[in-house]
């Protein structure tokens, strides 16, 4: 067997494990989801072996994030994968990888540091109310704090996501547990873009499957809806979106495997593409459900809420501005 084929089989095995793990998480409280996912070896994909991890590349995390997206996993999975890796050399790494501590990241805002303590308001921290550990940005990188440390106050969430509701967190002279330097924090943010692209891709795939099933079984005007060309084209566009995202993710994997510097850029464009095409596909899948799509019971709105949240957490709008700026700079 060639190295690439082994690699592919390895990734496919992760995909299958992840699908099953995500499905069995559904009925469990968040903490038990951590143990389930850890038990299935999914939380340490990116973490070093010394922390109980597998020390694999991002492309192994991609199918896991796709499964998390498709299965609406209510767990800060991207955050856990990234923090397990970033803090692998500290005692927090193994605790995160083993699912003993739930960790999340405040993706928006940053705190100020004064006499070694941090203060300020941060936001977009998924499931902060369930977490033990929280990473917050500082002027010089990021720090890990305990959620129940003195000076940490959670605000009620007002975001769209129902699976992993986002919180704002106010920190008042909180003592950090560990730090991450600017370069490593920047890498973590870049890696997060790719994981989010995979998650949105998983959601888009799932919504396409739901829409396809709906219009294939429902009849109006004495015909199955899927026989109407307008709907076939809408489904074809949804498929196109899913393929765009898949192709961009694979391109990133290939570039990363060959150590190409362009991999970073490819992660950004994969995420940008996922937010643009993936969200349009989910909205279209909702439309194809008719009135049914507007109900709480059909999961499409949950995917839409999540994807819109992933769009905000990765600051897709700001990323597009930076991509344009890079283009201008290159031609200055």
């Amino acid at each position: 067997m060639s190295a690439t084929m082994e690699h592919r089989d390895g990734i496919a095995a992760f995909a299958e494990t992840a699908r099953q793990a995500v499905a069995s998480c559904a009925a469990k409280p968040v903490r038990d989801r951590a143990s389930q996912l850890a038990g299935d070896g999914l939380l340490g994909i990116l973490a070093p072996e010394s922390a109980g991890g597998l020390d694999l590349g991002l492309d192994f995390a991609v199918p896991v994030m796709e499964a998390a997206g498709a299965g609406l996993l209510g767990f800060p999975l991207a955050e856990t994968l990234l923090l397990g890796a970033a803090f692998g050399a500290t005692p927090f790494g193994p605790a995160i990888v083993l699912g003993e501590r739930v960790a999340t990241i405040a993706w928006a805002g940053r705190v100020r540091t004064a006499s070694g303590r941090v203060s300020g308001t941060v936001g977009r921290a998924p499931l902060a109310d369930q977490a033990d550990l929280l990473l917050v940005a500082t002027e010089t990188g990021a720090v890990l704090v305990a959620r129940d440390a003195p000076g940490v106050t959670l605000q009620p969430a007002i975001g769209l996501d129902l699976e992993a509701p986002e919180h704002e967190v106010v920190l008042d002279a909180v003592a950090p547990l560990a730090t991450l330097d600017a370069a490593r924090f920047a890498t973590l943010r870049e890696d997060a873009l790719l994981l989010r692209a995979a998650e949105i891709g998983g959601s888009a795939q799932r919504c396409l499957a739901l829409a396809l099933e709906h219009v294939s079984t429902r009849e109006q005007f004495g015909r199955t809806l899927v026989s109407f060309q307008a709907l076939r084209h809408a489904l074809a566009r949804q498929k196109l979106a899913v393929e765009h995202i898949g192709a961009a993710l694979e391109r990133h994997a290939a570039l990363a495997a060959s150590g190409a510097g362009e991999a970073r850029h490819a992660a950004r464009t994969a995420y940008a593409a996922a937010t643009r095409f993936g969200i349009a596909a989910i909205e279209s899948a909702l439309q194809l459900h008719g009135g049914m799509g507007f109900t709480w019971e059909v999961d499409v709105h949950r995917h839409l809420r999540r994807a819109r949240t992933a769009e905000a957490q990765g600051d897709a709008a700001g990323l597009h501005r930076r991509l344009a700026q890079d283009l201008l700079t290159a031609n200055a």
Partner: peptide, 28 residues
């Protein structure tokens, strides 16, 4: 509005909440 920084003024948060609801309702 989703680009509003954490800790934005109450009026901004209220607008965020209004337009989140509007985004969902407009799908219908």
């Amino acid at each position: 509005l989703e680009q509003a920084p954490p800790g934005a003024a109450p009026e901004v948060q209220a607008a965020r909440a209004r337009f989140q609801r509007l985004y969902l309702a407009a799908r219908a």
